[in-house]
Design a binder for these strands. Structure first.
Lengths: 252, 252
DNA sequence: GAGTGGTCTAGACCACTGC
DNA sequence: CAGTGGTCTAGACCACTCA
């Protein structure tokens, strides 16, 4: 834990031979890496600011600056008098388009998918509408349970035009990583969200009591060209997610 | 300019007779007020950090902390070697959002409020933090049930600095309409949202079964000067609220 | 009461800007 | 070149948490 952090900190120093490295940036990256590597798990505490300062031969002010950055990204949380902890809830920006897989990795969680379905078929009228496809077009359908480590987090149904991905088996964990290799990631998305209560099937899959609160999210993601790459309907566990949005208040 | 800032800083000190006030919060508020009062206009520069520190008998670190908060809200901008300036225009990427309330109006439904509480009081520590107010400052509290026609939709608790609205009775249905008549509407807001299950009291108020799904939304709305005008915690019926956002992929 | 984060100080050196 | 913000230090005291 401390050792990993110290190692990462030194590593970060070496990384930038060309550029001058800032102590607080180095420490910040070191903490991030330690979390991603699993040395710091959600809910666990970091060494105290004073200990970190001593360990790394930094002043406490510098340590605080490094931590502050991660706190306002939602990666760490601090409790006065108690300590600094790796955030347990997943705070997801509702304004930035990020991949589920990347989100979890940034928090030191291991994303994993269990597929119920990976198939090719003809679009339904619904899907054709959502994806702007002609009737008769072929689509790939993914239906899966998404995990963070051993914890099921969400149920997800995704539909993708077949000409964009070709083979459903190209998608292992991350759709966006598969897209990287072909048409690139989407640059824009429209998302709609509401609260729901899980029905019997959903609750069972997620290991929650019937009627537990969750979030239903529907997303259409677009390529730079304007093409719809993805139509996804997800059910997220309410106890694991926080969504943050920055918005412009309407003139009316 | 400098004079106004100094005066505002002292003013902020007086507000809290009982509790200790934080220097960086005081300075931050003083800068905001100076902007609102027109003593600092967009594009103009602030005194240098060193000068501010000397003027207010603070350390430079403290002055920087006050400024940093306003910089990341987009109210001020800093240019290395040049100075600190009042932002000419706030350039940030916002999601466009439509709330259920907006949809209501668009659909011709009548929003209506039943108030449980409309009062004036002193800020709680929580509220002071959320609104960037000095301890001891007066706030208006609104606690209400919001309807669309005869359907209860949400339970809402709003806290507003008193100097922005003066009289709680000025708010009939829309807080923003009341603000139109005084300081103008907020230009930006930060929202955090998660799924919850309604407890007994909430369920009863909304006429729903215990444990029904809902959205808990916490919102802080800002004026162009960076001042927080509103801190609201709402509980929306899950079956009635749709949250729509457009997301952008970020290069960083 | 020991340990934690939260605030604050009075210095210092560096990198950049603009005259 | 003088002046600015950017980084960093080595202290200090306070307020809070938890056993």
């Amino acid at each position: 834990m401390q050792n990993t952090l110290l190692k990462e900190y030194r590593q970060q120093g070496r990384a930038n031979s060309t550029t001058r490295s800032l102590a607080y940036e180095r420490l910040r990256r070191a903490i991030q890496k330690s979390i991603e590597a699993g040395a710091l798990e959600p809910g666990h505490s970091l060494p105290s600011e004073r200990d970190l300062a001593k360990l790394l031969s930094l002043s406490r002010v510098t340590v605080r600056k490094a931590i502050a950055g991660l706190v306002d990204e939602g990666v760490l949380t601090q409790r006065h008098g108690a300590g600094t902890f790796v955030a347990a809830r997943i705070v997801k920006s509702f304004s930035k388009l990020t991949s589920f897989t990347d989100d979890l990795r940034a928090r030191g969680l291991k994303p994993r998918s269990v597929f119920f379905e990976k198939s090719i078929g003809e679009v339904t009228p619904d899907e054709a509408m959502a994806l702007n496809l002609s009737p008769g077009a072929k689509v790939i359908r993914l239906h899966r349970l998404r995990y963070a480590g051993d914890e099921p987090l969400a149920i997800e149904r995704t539909t993708i035009p077949q000409d964009l991905v070709a083979d459903p088996d190209m998608v292992e964990d991350s759709l966006y990583e598969a897209l990287d290799k072909t048409h690139g990631r989407p640059t824009r998305a429209l998302q709609r969200l509401r609260a729901i209560a899980f029905d019997a099937d959903q609750a069972k899959l997620l290991g929650l009591p019937l009627g537990s609160p969750g979030l239903f999210i529907e997303r259409r993601a677009f390529l730079a060209s304007g093409r719809v790459v993805e139509f996804t309907r997800s059910f997220y566990r309410g106890d694991a997610y926080d969504f943050v949005a920055e918005l412009q208040s309407d003139t009316d």
